[in-house]
Lab assay of single mutants.
Amino acid sequence: THFTSQQLQELEATFQRNHYPDMSTREEIAVWTNLTEARVRVWFKNRRAKWR
């Protein structure tokens, strides 16, 4: 999946605040970024792996 810079900005900003967002937070992010909750969940999983 290719993310727009706007989507990445929103995802990264949320990641800085919370590395493990809950389901409702992921659903909110999905609405803001026009992505599915599953895409958001996978992005956070991959981002945490990169962060370690």
Rank of each mutant, 00 (worst) to 15 (best):
residue 24 S to W: 08
residue 35 L to Y: 02
residue 27 E to W: 09
residue 51 W to K: 06
residue 22 D to E: 04
residue 49 A to Q: 10
residue 44 F to R: 00
residue 21 P to C: 06
residue 6 Q to Y: 13
residue 51 W to H: 13
residue 2 H to K: 13
residue 29 I to F: 03
residue 32 W to N: 15
residue 24 S to G: 08
residue 32 W to E: 11
residue 4 T to C: 06
residue 22 D to G: 06
residue 3 F to V: 06
residue 40 V to N: 01
residue 29 I to R: 00
residue 13 A to F: 10
residue 24 S to D: 09
residue 42 V to P: 00
residue 4 T to F: 04
residue 31 V to S: 12
residue 3 F to L: 14
residue 6 Q to G: 08
residue 33 T to W: 07
residue 28 E to F: 09
residue 17 R to C: 14
residue 13 A to M: 12
residue 10 E to R: 15
residue 50 K to F: 08
residue 5 S to A: 13
residue 45 K to G: 05
residue 9 Q to F: 11
residue 17 R to H: 09
residue 17 R to I: 11
residue 39 R to H: 10
residue 2 H to C: 14
residue 15 F to K: 01
residue 41 R to D: 07
residue 9 Q to P: 02
residue 26 R to K: 02
residue 32 W to L: 15
residue 23 M to V: 09
residue 48 R to C: 01
residue 20 Y to D: 04
residue 10 E to K: 15
residue 50 K to T: 08
residue 4 T to H: 04
residue 37 E to M: 05
residue 38 A to K: 13
residue 51 W to V: 07
residue 31 V to K: 15
residue 15 F to T: 03
residue 34 N to K: 09
residue 36 T to Q: 04
residue 22 D to N: 10
residue 42 V to S: 12
residue 40 V to W: 01
residue 29 I to V: 06
residue 12 E to T: 02
residue 45 K to D: 05
residue 15 F to E: 00
residue 21 P to D: 01
residue 38 A to Y: 14
residue 23 M to W: 10
residue 51 W to L: 10
residue 12 E to C: 06
residue 46 N to R: 14
residue 12 E to R: 02
residue 27 E to M: 15
residue 37 E to Q: 06
residue 3 F to H: 03
residue 46 N to Y: 14
residue 33 T to H: 07
residue 22 D to P: 07
residue 8 L to D: 05
residue 39 R to W: 11
residue 23 M to Q: 12
residue 44 F to Q: 00
residue 34 N to Q: 10
residue 47 R to G: 02
residue 31 V to F: 13
residue 18 N to H: 06
residue 25 T to G: 05
residue 26 R to N: 02
residue 44 F to G: 00
residue 12 E to W: 05
residue 9 Q to R: 13
residue 38 A to F: 13
residue 17 R to S: 08
residue 35 L to N: 05
residue 5 S to I: 12
residue 16 Q to A: 10
residue 16 Q to P: 03
residue 52 R to Y: 12
residue 40 V to R: 01
residue 29 I to P: 00
residue 40 V to Q: 00
residue 52 R to V: 09
residue 34 N to C: 08
residue 28 E to N: 09
residue 38 A to M: 13
residue 49 A to N: 08
residue 25 T to M: 13
residue 43 W to F: 02
residue 12 E to G: 00
residue 40 V to M: 01
residue 14 T to Q: 15
residue 40 V to A: 00
residue 14 T to W: 15
residue 45 K to A: 10
residue 7 Q to K: 04
residue 45 K to T: 07
residue 48 R to H: 03
residue 27 E to N: 11
residue 44 F to Y: 06
residue 9 Q to G: 07
residue 1 T to V: 12
residue 28 E to M: 14
residue 45 K to S: 08
residue 27 E to Q: 14
residue 49 A to H: 09
residue 42 V to M: 14
residue 5 S to P: 14
residue 20 Y to S: 05
residue 50 K to E: 14
residue 51 W to Y: 09
residue 46 N to I: 13
residue 22 D to V: 05
residue 35 L to P: 00
residue 41 R to H: 07
residue 38 A to S: 11
residue 4 T to M: 04
residue 42 V to L: 14
residue 34 N to H: 10
residue 38 A to I: 12
residue 48 R to P: 00
residue 42 V to N: 12
residue 14 T to P: 01
residue 30 A to N: 01
residue 7 Q to P: 01
residue 27 E to L: 14
residue 30 A to E: 02
residue 49 A to Y: 08
residue 31 V to I: 13
residue 3 F to M: 10
residue 7 Q to G: 02
residue 19 H to T: 03
residue 25 T to R: 09
residue 2 H to D: 11
residue 46 N to G: 07
residue 18 N to R: 03
residue 11 L to Q: 00
residue 15 F to D: 00
residue 5 S to F: 13
residue 5 S to K: 14
residue 48 R to V: 06
residue 25 T to W: 06
residue 46 N to Q: 13
residue 1 T to W: 13
residue 28 E to Y: 09
residue 25 T to Q: 14
residue 17 R to M: 11
residue 4 T to V: 03
residue 25 T to Y: 08
residue 32 W to I: 15
residue 23 M to Y: 14
residue 12 E to I: 04
residue 25 T to H: 07
residue 1 T to H: 12
residue 50 K to L: 13
residue 41 R to V: 04
residue 33 T to A: 07
residue 13 A to L: 10
residue 50 K to H: 08
residue 20 Y to C: 10
residue 10 E to L: 15
residue 28 E to K: 14
residue 10 E to A: 15
residue 4 T to S: 09
residue 15 F to G: 03
residue 38 A to G: 08
residue 32 W to Q: 15
residue 30 A to M: 03
residue 6 Q to A: 12
residue 52 R to H: 11
residue 36 T to C: 06
residue 5 S to C: 14
residue 23 M to N: 06
residue 28 E to W: 13
residue 32 W to R: 15
residue 45 K to W: 09
residue 9 Q to E: 11
residue 42 V to G: 08
residue 45 K to V: 11
residue 30 A to H: 02
residue 5 S to Y: 13
residue 50 K to N: 07
residue 34 N to P: 01
residue 36 T to L: 04
residue 39 R to D: 15
residue 37 E to V: 06
residue 11 L to E: 01
residue 7 Q to E: 04
residue 43 W to Y: 02
residue 22 D to I: 05
residue 33 T to C: 11
residue 27 E to S: 10
residue 33 T to N: 07
residue 10 E to C: 15
residue 47 R to Y: 02
residue 12 E to L: 03
residue 25 T to F: 07
residue 52 R to N: 09
residue 42 V to R: 15
residue 44 F to L: 02
residue 23 M to L: 14
residue 20 Y to H: 06
residue 41 R to Q: 07
residue 21 P to E: 01
residue 26 R to G: 02
residue 14 T to E: 14
residue 17 R to L: 11
residue 45 K to C: 10
residue 52 R to I: 10
residue 12 E to D: 03
residue 14 T to S: 15
residue 29 I to N: 01
residue 49 A to M: 09
residue 8 L to M: 07
residue 23 M to K: 15
residue 27 E to H: 13
residue 37 E to I: 06
residue 20 Y to G: 01
residue 2 H to L: 10
residue 45 K to F: 09
residue 39 R to T: 14
residue 51 W to E: 12
residue 15 F to N: 01
residue 35 L to H: 04
residue 12 E to M: 03
residue 9 Q to L: 12
residue 39 R to E: 15
residue 37 E to N: 04
residue 13 A to R: 13
residue 5 S to Q: 13
residue 31 V to P: 00
residue 10 E to S: 13
residue 32 W to P: 02
residue 19 H to Y: 05
residue 7 Q to R: 03
residue 48 R to K: 02
residue 43 W to I: 01
residue 1 T to D: 12
residue 13 A to V: 08
residue 43 W to C: 01
residue 42 V to K: 14
residue 45 K to N: 07
residue 21 P to A: 06
residue 38 A to H: 12
residue 16 Q to V: 08
residue 44 F to C: 02
residue 19 H to R: 11
residue 30 A to G: 07
residue 36 T to P: 07
residue 41 R to L: 07
residue 1 T to F: 14
residue 43 W to Q: 00
residue 28 E to I: 12
residue 51 W to P: 05
residue 44 F to K: 00
residue 51 W to D: 08
residue 22 D to S: 09
residue 21 P to R: 01
residue 40 V to P: 00
residue 46 N to W: 15
residue 9 Q to N: 09
residue 34 N to S: 09
residue 37 E to K: 04
residue 6 Q to L: 11
residue 21 P to W: 05
residue 5 S to L: 13
residue 46 N to E: 13
residue 21 P to M: 03
residue 5 S to T: 12
residue 23 M to T: 08
residue 42 V to W: 14
residue 19 H to W: 06
residue 20 Y to Q: 03
residue 37 E to S: 05
residue 27 E to F: 13
residue 8 L to F: 05
residue 16 Q to H: 11
residue 28 E to A: 14
residue 49 A to E: 09
residue 13 A to W: 12
residue 8 L to V: 08
residue 9 Q to H: 12
residue 11 L to K: 00
residue 25 T to D: 08
residue 35 L to K: 05
residue 4 T to I: 03
residue 24 S to F: 10
residue 7 Q to T: 06
residue 26 R to C: 07
residue 35 L to W: 06
residue 22 D to H: 05
residue 19 H to N: 06
residue 16 Q to L: 11
residue 47 R to V: 02
residue 17 R to G: 07
residue 44 F to D: 00
residue 49 A to L: 09
residue 26 R to S: 02
residue 17 R to N: 08
residue 11 L to C: 03
residue 13 A to K: 13
residue 46 N to P: 00
residue 27 E to T: 12
residue 41 R to A: 10
residue 24 S to P: 11
residue 46 N to K: 14
residue 23 M to H: 12
residue 41 R to Y: 07
residue 2 H to S: 12
